[in-house]
Design a protein around this nucleic acid. Sequence first.
DNA 1: TAGGCCATCTGGTCCT
DNA 2: AGGACCAGATGGCCTA
Length: 335
Amino acid sequence: MDSDAGSASSRSSSPDIAAVEGAVGGYFPSKMFQGYFQDGRPDPGALQPRKECSMAGRPKAKTREELTKEDLQDLRLKVNSRERKRMHDLNQAMDGLREVMPYAQGPSVRKLSKISTLLLARNYILMLSSSLDEMKKLVGEVYGNGGGGNQGHIPRRAPVAQVTTPQLPLHPLAQSLHSLMGATPPAPPTAPSAPASLSPPSAPGFLAFHSPLQGLLKDPLHLSSSFRHFPGMPCPCSLCQPLAAPTPSLHSLAMAWPDATLFAPYCATGPFSDHQSSANLRVSKMKGTRGHTVTRSRGPHSHSGAVVSPERPGRHRTIAAWRRTIGIGPGPSCL
DNA sequence: TAGGCCATCTGGTCCT
DNA sequence: AGGACCAGATGGCCTA
């Protein structure tokens, strides 16, 4: 019944999950890849002694033809176990990616599907890249033509949101930037900003989320104290209510729904272009059905049993259904 | 009930 | 030879 006979396999194709999780915030640091190469990859040196030992203490290994039915079964179980572990590691890496994605996370939120995670990650990277380029342009325009020897350094340490005060004529890009920054009200001088644990460590400041307190105050549904608020992400709080027409500006990047920005390429060309599941964002209110680790047998060959605790997906709700539930308007046409 | 998503098994291929 | 990787097949769970 136990198909996990090979669980003690010393080889792994995946990064050491403990090493990855031990990294700050579970983010994707170089540590991850260090862990991958140092801990996850096969270590010939570590294997060598065992091999020698086994060779010394045992008769010559059987050839394929010499393997008995039991031997073949054991081999098959070992292979199955390795494959299972490989897929589990892959899923854990996928979870690590989900953790840093700009999308609501919490016990009451359905996690992104694999394909959605990958597509969102891709578009998120593209969005950050374009935002960074725009930021560079903006900084260059603001400080590059001052001519008064101010080039090359920021004249004051105030946040950008304070730089763009009403007294100053705002460059259109600066206005967009201000809109972005304005999504997060200035914190009191002594009050700490949003906990770092709630922000992707590498996300630029202008992409930071609303503070948890603000989200709680603005969130009429009180979805969850751990509900993350991201600019541009589907969020029931009043700040995120306006639906902006999808334009390439920073402002729209901040205010548009993810399916209009991060998911736009997918909506246009992906398999979800037909109906409500376009964004394939699942939201669940079913506590207890998500994130649980259960043991069950599945698949046509589950005769071997002991299928290793796969994570069971909870109830699925498309983002369209989620919108209906929380009473916000329809999204872009792709939905 | 259909479709989407998922986990698992399995056999083949490639690499060390 | 053994392991990693891959893709196909299969069946379960869930939502619309």
